[in-house]
């Protein structure tokens, strides 16, 4: 029996879809059978981030409404044979799906897959309720900004009210230079405020934009963000990997801060 993980954030634009694509791809790269479901009906994006937009025939709403079999709506990834994507419908709205139907679908999929990754829409309305309905655990994505953290806190409260046992945090778009100057909240600051376990810290990396342009997830490559996402996947599989967001930069920066400390 597989595990259903919902990736959510409350606020839009903090990196839910990027995280979904990279966590899904990363787990598949580590040999797991993975299906990613884009639950953002009307505003689908996971397909373009994955570079699979030209292969869509059927979608999530077609499956829910019984227009096709589940298997027909699963797009096989071009890189990993154990990775599948179920795209969302672009021409429908959130009311096309009910939470009970999502539970039924995820229960069906987790019999065949090791991981079901749900890319949640922004907001706390029906789309969010649909996405969390069938999930076993949640990953909350946030950035070190007041607005994103406030929304993340609200989402965590809602997940707790829905009796989620495991809620983990991914802190995205960290800029070490700004943290060092005191102009960005640090990893510790954010974890202290939100008080949930940290699953990963992802640096603000221009390679994310480049990867999205090309429709290629960057997990597993040697970019900072690619390595950070790979570490997230390894932690999901139970490996104990310390959180170091900027492995190579640490030594240079500790020298710089050393100068400041002496003054």
């Amino acid at each position: 029996m597989g595990e259903v993980i919902v990736i959510t954030s409350g606020k839009g634009g903090v990196g839910k879809t990027t995280t979904s694509a990279n966590v899904g791809t990363g787990l598949a790269a580590l040999g797991k059978k993975v299906v990613m479901i884009d639950t953002d009906i009307g505003l689908r994006n996971l397909d373009v981030v994955m570079g699979l937009e030209n292969r869509i025939v059927y979608n999530l709403v077609d499956v829910i409404e019984g227009n096709c079999r589940v298997k027909q709506a699963l797009i096989k990834d071009k890189r990993y044979h154990s990775l599948y994507l179920m795209p969302s419908a672009q021409t429908r709205d959130k009311s096309a799906v009910k939470p009970e139907q999502m539970v039924k679908l995820t229960n069906h999929l987790k019999e065949q897959f090791d991981y079901v990754i749900l890319d949640c829409p922004a907001g706390i309305e029906q789309g969010f309720q649909n996405a969390i309905a069938g999930a076993d655990r949640a990953i909350v994505v946030t950035t070190p900004e007041v607005s994103a953290i406030r929304d993340a806190d609200r989402i965590i409260g809602l997940l707790e009210a829905n009796e989620f046992k495991q809620i983990d945090l991914i802190l995205n778009r960290l800029r070490l230079d700004m943290i060092k100057k005191g102009d960005m909240m640090s990893i510790d600051d954010v974890v202290d405020i939100l008080s949930i376990p940290l699953l990963g810290a992802i640096p603000d990396d221009e390679n994310v934009v480049i990867a999205t342009n090309q429709g290629e997830p960057l997990v597993g490559n040697q970019t900072f963000a690619g390595r950070a996402f790979r570490n997230v996947c390894l932690r999901l599989l139970g490996e104990n990997i310390p959180i170091i967001a900027f492995e190579q930069e640490t030594s240079i920066w500790s020298k710089v801060t050393g100068i400041f400390h002496r003054n």
């Binding site: 070190p144 900004e145 005191g182 102009d183 640090s186």
Partner: peptide, 27 residues
């Protein structure tokens, strides 16, 4: 260098504001 000490770090401002804000948000 002197300017750094004059002004409170904006990250501290953010953290302090969030702490107060979230208490009232949560309840």
């Amino acid at each position: 260098m002197w300017k750094l000490f004059k002004k409170k770090n904006s990250s501290h401002v953010a953290k302090d504001r969030l702490k107060i804000l979230l208490i009232s948000d949560r309840m």
